[in-house]
Nucleic acid binder design. Structure first.
Lengths: 328, 328
DNA sequence: CTGAAAGCGCTTACAG
DNA sequence: CTGAAAGCGCTTACAG
């Protein structure tokens, strides 16, 4: 049978409240402390967390709301969050939304109901429902991956990354460029990266640039790239994510063209595969795992009521590999 | 302020027990039911799950203990588990062990303490501690990915997969074969696949086969493959996972050799990238997501006390792509 | 069909 | 330094 605080108290010949105090670091005499040490070790007593939470009205749970499990960026961030949270004495509770926006909202409420101490939301998009839910639950919420003035957030240097890639392809002598982006609903990936890129290109005085839009999937990118190859003589395809770059590379290969001799390709993210495929992919390194750790630290500081900077920007950097041809 | 069952009872002019009965599908008159419908909708009342669990001593939580977040197989299975569990009215609670065996054991105990209704353990290895913990917590536990007579389990057709690959490379005319496996501590991946492969090869009367061992990582496989290339003239490298195949392909490319012209490569798993890389990888398709759904159904049936078959085997099949040269 | 009462396993003032 | 008591928000026999 499961042992409870009453059992322990009885065995030690003290009151439940004394045991509780012992457990929570309160005042207990040395002798009863010793006695309790032994009894608790012997019985392997573990407090019932439901009873604790019911009474204390708080937990050490931190919810992580994620759009999907099978995303490189998400899983890497989750590792960072999980590891850091564990060190800080918190536990992660992962809620997957399968990319359904309404499920993000539901999860905010249900995590609040489960008395989560805080929430890290890996968001693709912030809507008014998000803001409403956040106000209603009145819980520390940290948005990761997107910026929003209503929330504390952690973002990557997307604009700078786009700028760096733009400068790089220009430096390599490319003057006919194709940019394969994503929906502008995703501000970080769809807007910031593109804007940074555009800025660099304009500074370089390059005019021959066309913009396309793809879904986030490899297959979607494959389809888009296939049609671009047929109609556009660009010498480099700048892709808004590594996944898009992968689909694009596949399409180029399937057309019997060579990378980077015929067409150059770049990505954003630096997934593991970027260094494995042939040719290896020139891309921007996004330190997802580290960022997850930073997010964990930030939410914990928010929970502890510290005065936390609203916006944290995680710097990224270019990794030059073999997928871009130097034309000069 | 958070509304409780007492508030609802007061507003409806009934007793708490009546509200509770209403909530749990018990007998309630039509009129009070209607009244309660409205009040609960208006107040957005949500029962406190801690109080429920404290009293009922059970939850609808099912723990999934995973070795790591950044594994293709794991994340796909998680998706399948998560989706199916949701449909069945259960919630997943993901616990990551960062590949630490002792954390698997810890998590079994802590999930029991959190009153999980059951546990799905994505295991690489079953030890006596696992068995001990399972007995101690007395909770339905399903092992996924490994077979063990002490547990209900769900496995892939690893031996058959190995056999199929063996037959396939033989059929393609390869007679000098190199098998790159993993530690035998992992019975499914390290033993079963190899045994199935060996059986096929023996049936084919091929004698020129050498066996190597790699870690699970791409980098580890790269290192192993690099040394093999220098010493072994095999025409095909049969790799025990797609990740190992990726590292191996990278090593082959780095040596200036062509796949499949100079060396052929096969994998197990059929990760997304298998179809994206160039050449695309001939491998065994493992339906991870579907298997996750099957696991979810199985654990729920176990929880419900149904008489569930101890061992479920998920069939896999060969996917022929471009990484194997036909020598005949 | 309904309500009063006890109890789940804790924590938290409060009094000593 | 310690204990008795109340209470967190539910559920569950039990009696009506």
């Amino acid at each position: 049978m499961k042992v409870t605080i009453s059992d322990i108290a009885k065995m030690a010949g003290v009151a439940k409240s004394t045991v509780s105090r012992y457990l929570n670091g309160g005042y207990v005499s040395e002798t009863t402390k010793l006695k309790l040490d032994k009894i608790i070790a012997d019985t392997k007593y573990e407090p019932n967390s439901f009873a604790q939470s019911l009474k204390a009205k708080k937990t050490n749970l931190i919810g992580a709301i994620i759009p999907r499990f099978d995303s490189y960026a998400t899983s890497r961030m989750l590792i960072g969050i999980d590891e850091s949270l564990k060190e800080l004495g918190y536990q992660i509770l992962v809620a997957n939304t399968s990319q359904k926006l309404e499920r993000e909202i539901e999860n905010i409420y249900s995590l609040a109901n489960q008395k989560a101490a805080g929430i890290i939301l890996l968001a693709k998009q912030i809507t008014k429902e998000h803001i409403e839910a956040a106000k209603a639950v009145d819980l520390p919420i940290l948005i990761a991956g997107q910026e929003d003035e209503e929330f504390h957030s952690l973002v990557y240097g997307d604009a700078q990354s786009g700028y760096d890639i733009g400068k790089y392809v220009a430096k390599c002598g490319h003057t006919n460029i194709c940019y394969i982006g994503v929906t502008e609903e995703d501000v970080a990936v769809g807007v910031k990266r593109k804007e940074g890129f555009r800025k660099a290109i304009e500074e370089e005085g390059i005019e021959n640039v066309s913009y396309y839009e793809s879904s986030f999937s490899i297959e979607g990118a494959y389809t888009v790239a296939t049609s671009i190859i047929k109609e556009n003589p660009a010498t480099v395809y700048v892709c808004a994510t590594d996944n898009i770059a992968l689909g694009t590379m596949k399409a180029i290969h399937h057309h019997g063209l060579k990378i980077p001799e015929d067409i150059s390709v770049t990505g954003f993210g630096d997934y593991d595969v970027a260094d494995i495929i042939d040719p290896s992919l020139t891309t921007i390194h996004y330190p997802y795992k580290t960022a997850g750790g930073t997010a964990a630290n930030k939410i914990v500081r928010m929970i502890q009521g510290e005065d936390v900077e609203r916006l944290t920007t995680i710097p990224c950097y270019l990794v030059e590999r073999k997928s871009v041809r130097r034309r000069k």
